[in-house]
Design a binder for these strands. Structure first.
Lengths: 358, 358
DNA sequence: TTGTAGGCGTTATCAA
DNA sequence: TTGATAACGCCTACAA
C-alpha cells in the first residue's frame, strides 16, 4: 500500500506486487517471476513469496499486466440483434458452453450485441480496436463496418458459429443443416407423404438456403417435383417464430390441395402452427405430420410431443473456442475452414404414416 | 507506428496517440485532451487532431487508459450455475436489457458463471480483485468466497437482481413475488376454488418463500386452512422445471381429495404438469385451473393457453444498472435498498370457475 | 491554450 | 537465481 499516511479511504486499491516483495524480502521482479514462471525461481524463495501473497490476499492487476504484455484475455461474443426466441435455448446454451471452454483456457467472455443500428457496430469496433478483446466469436452474418474501420481488419482472430462464413474468410462451426433436412424429408417421403409445407425463416438466410436445398434434394431423389413443397414465411426473422407459425397456419388453410407433412425451420414456428391447426380441427399426426428444428426440450411436452432436429450446441461452442485458441496461438493462419458437427433428429409422435389420400 | 524499419507483420498494434500527435503537429497531451475534454482545447487544433485521428483510424488503447485512471469500464453479471431453463426467456432478456443499459453508460458486460465448484468462485473473485471489473450484478443467492477473499470485500459496487439480498447488504431489484401470488390466489378463491396444489422450486429459495407466503396470506384472508393447499416439489432446482411438473402430476394423481386449482412456480412446471394430467384425461380448465410464473411467450400457444405471471425483466435490468451506476459514482454509499417492480398477470383460458364439487 | 514530465502496476531485458 | 531498470500507452499536474 502506498497511501499509508493519510489514507483517504475512498479507493483502497488492494496490495501491490511491491507489497508482496517487501513482505517476502525480495525484489519486485522476483515476485513477478515466482507468480508467472514458478519454474524459473528458487523453490525456497517461491514459497516465501507465495506465503506473502496469500497473507496479503494479493491478486495481480490484470490491466497492468495486459498493457505490459500487449494482450487482453477477453473474448467477445457477437450476438444477433435480439436474443429473444420463444422456446429455443440456443443462445443460453451457446453462452454457457463457450464461457466454460474459455475459462478453461484462461479467458473471459464479454458480450456484444449487434443490432442494426450504427451505434452497436461502433461499439463492437471499439472493443476490437481498443485492444479490449483478443478475439471474437460471431453468431451474426454481418461483420461490423463503420467509416473505415472494419472488424475484418482489426487483426483479431474471429470464428463464426451457427452460420457458415468461410466464404468471408472466417473459420466456421456449423451443423449439417442441409443433410439433416434431406434425411428428414426422405423419411417423410418414406412414410408416404407427397405434399409438403415448408415454413421458412428470413429468406436468403444461411439456414434457410441450406435447409430448403436439403429438402429439395430429397424431393428430387424421390422423383417429386419442386411444386410438391409449398413455402410459407420468408419475411420475418427467426425471433418472430410464433408469428411465422400462426401465419403459416393461415396459409395452410388456404391451400387447395393440403399437404400432409409440415417442416418448420424452428420449434417456435412448429408450436404456434400446431396450436392453430389443431384449433381448426386437424389431428396431428393423423391428418398432418410435423417436424421442426432446434431441439427445444419443451417439445417433449407438447401434445403431441414434437419431433425436432437438435443442434449440437455444446460441441459447437467447444469447437468454436478450440479453433479460436488455435488462431490466437498460431503464428501463421491456416485457411478458413468449415467445421460441421452433425445434428440429431429426435423422433416423437408428431410424424407418422401419411393417411392414404387421393 | 514505431516498428517502421523491419515491420515483422505479426502484431500490428495499430496507431498510437503519438502517431496522431505527430500527424497533427501537436503534443501527445494535447491529443489526449482533445479526445477526452474537447472543450479544453482550441477549436482549430481540435479539428486538426480529429482529422488526424480519423485519417489514421485511431482508437485509444483501453487497457492503457484504464490502468492510468485506475478504473475499468467492465461490469460483470454473475449468473447462477445453469442458464438452461425450458421455455423461460428470463436470462436472455436480462442480458439484453442490462447490456443495452450498460452500453448507454459507457460500460461493457462480462459474463461470469457461478457454479457450485470452487473454481468458478475463484474465477469470479479474480475478476473482482484483479481490477478487471468495476462492478457486478448478481443473480445468484450466494456471494463467492474462497480462502479469505470474499466478493463482499472486493470494494466493488454490487447489485442483486431477481433475489432480495438487501439483508446481505446488497441493493436488490426484485418483483413483487408475494403480492402477485396473493392476488392470483385470491382470484382463484373468488372463482370458487377451495383445494389447491402448489408446485415449488427448491425449498428455502427466496422465490419459493415469498410466493408460498403470498398464497398462504390469501388462504388465511379467506378463512381457509393451510391444509387446503398441498405442496409438491421442493427438492429440485428451477432449471429442472419439467421434471418437477411431471412429478407433481404423479403427486396430484395420488391425492385423495383432488385440488381444483394448481399454482406452479414456473412455466416449465406448468407445461409438463399439464401435459401429464391431460394424458390422465383431465380437462383444463374444466376439471382443473392452472396458473404459473415467468410469462413465457409460448404459454399463449399451449392448449389451453396458460395464464402466467410475467416478470418485468426489462425494467428490472434497467433499474439494476441505474442503481449500479449510482453506486459507482457515489462518494458515500447509501443504505442497501429493496426496489420492487410489479409483475403482471396475463390471464388466459387455463383458469376458470371451479366446478361445483363436494 | 499548449507542452513537459512523471507515473499507473506489471513484465522483460540485462547485469550481477 | 536474483535485482535494477526500462518500457507498455495513456492521462494529468504543472509549467510555459
Amino acid at each position: 500500500m502506498k497511501n499509508n499516511k493519510d489514507m483517504p479511504v475512498e479507493e483502497q486499491s488492494g496490495p501491490l506486487m511491491a507489497d508482496v516483495a517487501r513482505l517476502a524480502g525480495v525484489a519486485i521482479s522476483t515476485v513477478s517471476r515466482a507468480l508467472a514462471n514458478p519454474g524459473r525461481v528458487n523453490e525456497k524463495t517461491r514459497l516465501k513469496i507465495d506465503a506473502a501473497a496469500k497473507q496479503l490476499g494479493y491478486t495481480p492487476n490484470a490491466m497492468a499486466r495486459n498493457l505490459r504484455v500487449g494482450k487482453s484475455n477477453i473474448i467477445m461474443i457477437i450476438l444477433p440483434g435480439s436474443l429473444y426466441y420463444g422456446v429455443s435455448q440456443i443462445i443460453p446454451q451457446v453462452l454457457q458452453s463457450i464461457n466454460k471452454a474459455l475459462i478453461q483456457n484462461g479467458y473471459h467472455l464479454m458480450i456484444a450485441n449487434l443490432d442494426r443500428d450504427e451505434m452497436s457496430e461502433r461499439h463492437i469496433l471499439d472493443l476490437a480496436f481498443s485492444g479490449t478483446v483478443r478475439g471474437a466469436i460471431i453468431l451474426s452474418s454481418k461483420l461490423p463496418e463503420v467509416d473505415g474501420r472494419s472488424l475484418a481488419n482489426a487483426g483479431l482472430p474471429i470464428v463464426s458459429m451457427l452460420l457458415d462464413m468461410s466464404d468471408a474468410g472466417l473459420p466456421s462451426v456449423v451443423t449439417n443443416d442441409r443433410a439433416a433436412m434431406r434425411d428428414v424429408t426422405e423419411e417423410l417421403i418414406g412414410l408416404g407423404h407427397r405434399r409438403f409445407l415448408y415454413i421458412a425463416g428470413p429468406e436468403g438466410n444461411y439456414h434457410d438456403v441450406e435447409r430448403y436445398a436439403g429438402a429439395l434434394e430429397a424431393l428430387r431423389a424421390a422423383g417429386l417435383s419442386e411444386e410438391s413443397m409449398s413455402r410459407s414465411g420468408g419475411r420475418r426473422d427467426y425471433q418472430e417464430g410464433f408469428a411465422i407459425g400462426v401465419e403459416a397456419a393461415a396459409d395452410f388453410a388456404q391451400l387447395a390441395n393440403r399437404p400432409t407433412a409440415v417442416i418448420a425451420t424452428s420449434d417456435d414456428m412448429a408450436i404456434s402452427f400446431v396450436s392453430r391447426v389443431q384449433r381448426m380441427g386437424l389431428n396431428i399426426p393423423g391428418d398432418l405430420s410435423v417436424v421442426s428444428f432446434d431441439g427445444s426440450p419443451v417439445c417433449e411436452f407438447s401434445s403431441p410431443p414434437l419431433s425436432t432436429i437438435e443442434q449440437p450446441v455444446e460441441e459447437m461452442g467447444q469447437a468454436a473456442v478450440d479453433i479460436l485458441m488455435e488462431r490466437i496461438d498460431a503464428t501463421e493462419r491456416g485457411a478458413a475452414m468449415r467445421h460441421v458437427i452433425p445434428s440429431r433428429l429426435i423422433r416423437r409422435e408428431s410424424f407418422a404414416l401419411a393417411q392414404s389420400t387421393v
